[in-house]
Design a protein around this nucleic acid. Sequence first.
DNA 1: GTTTTTGTTGATTGACGAGTCAATAAACTT
DNA 2: AAGTTTATTGACTCGTCAATCAACAAAAAC
Lengths: 198, 198
Amino acid sequence: MPKLGMEPIRKDALVKATITEIGRTGSLDVTVSQIAKRAGMSSALAHHYFGSKEDMFLAAMRHIMTIYGAEVRGALGVAQTPMARVEAIVVASFSPTNFRREAVGAWLNFWVLAQTVPQAKRLVAVYQRRLKSNLLVGLRPLAGARAEGIAEGLGALIDGLYLRQVLRPGAPDGAAAAQMARDYLAAHLPSAPQDHNR
Amino acid sequence: MPKLGMEPIRKDALVKATITEIGRTGSLDVTVSQIAKRAGMSSALAHHYFGSKEDMFLAAMRHIMTIYGAEVRGALGVAQTPMARVEAIVVASFSPTNFRREAVGAWLNFWVLAQTVPQAKRLVAVYQRRLKSNLLVGLRPLAGARAEGIAEGLGALIDGLYLRQVLRPGAPDGAAAAQMARDYLAAHLPSAPQDHNR
DNA sequence: GTTTTTGTTGATTGACGAGTCAATAAACTT
DNA sequence: AAGTTTATTGACTCGTCAATCAACAAAAAC
């Protein structure tokens, strides 16, 4: 009983299933059948819509980055001060949508994929560039020439917090991670007076 | 022409070859044959000395952690002040031995392995605990109650710097990474006066 | 109402790779 | 010198999985 216009629906289901399965198993060693099954179709159909497994992986990466990008853009839209802009990025990075178990697990594996697949490497590079440039818009008014280094460091810290989240048992604690990023900012920005005695 | 006492030699060669191959291909999808070939023997012999591929991976993890641990211990041995202790850990973390391409690439993949293999997860947990406790010894005299949070943050930052190194083209720049860690410390420690205008 | 397009799958192919085994040989033991 | 242990490998088994194909079904187009 084929309804028409299935393509986008099927593709969407496959992309989500890909993320779920990679996150669930914690590995890129997921079979197309597993993914297809979770998405409610045969593996042949998955191959029909995406040419190859690699294509599915890349689509899944793009999806994760799209969600993240949209959330950042949304938060940046309402930010008025430079500090609010930086804060918005931090909040978005550790929001329940992006910092959820599945997504973080998938993210780590995409990082690995980027070591092998040039396309994937390019996607990660895009993410890094965007993150840095977004941070810089907020940081430059606050830190001038030092903004560059702070953005680099904050980027690394965020990635590190993601990395560590992967192995932490239990529900992800985005609030704690975000607080760590804020502490980093507070310590590195000149204006905000620092309170080292608690 | 079998000479006796080959076991430790073969095992050592296999462990090193495992790290090399994982680092080279950037993936855990290396075949036992590849590893064995690089180590100069047949795949059957690799299976003879290690029961399974997983065993080889675990041995390789232990090897990397052992090298790292030894270097940290060595540097800590000669450190006199609390600050020197923390500095020693930073230096060791980004020393050419530990921060080399191969090792960092392998490290990332072991992180992935830890998502699937409980043994591997335990090893990473051990690394994290040791790092944190080593940092705390130096940080507590310097930061008191705040030491805990600083150690956690510095640990995440170090991991993040490793993570990012993986995708950076060209030779690894341990000096720059170490500097970033030092900046983190300088910004978070109360005593050292901060120079925000440069 | 026949032809084309779109959706769908079970079955098959073809490759690859982990782990086993039998066989060979050198060294140590008694 | 016969027997045991250690080293070593080529050949083989067995499973898995990405990708393809042939076939069927329903909607759309003509």
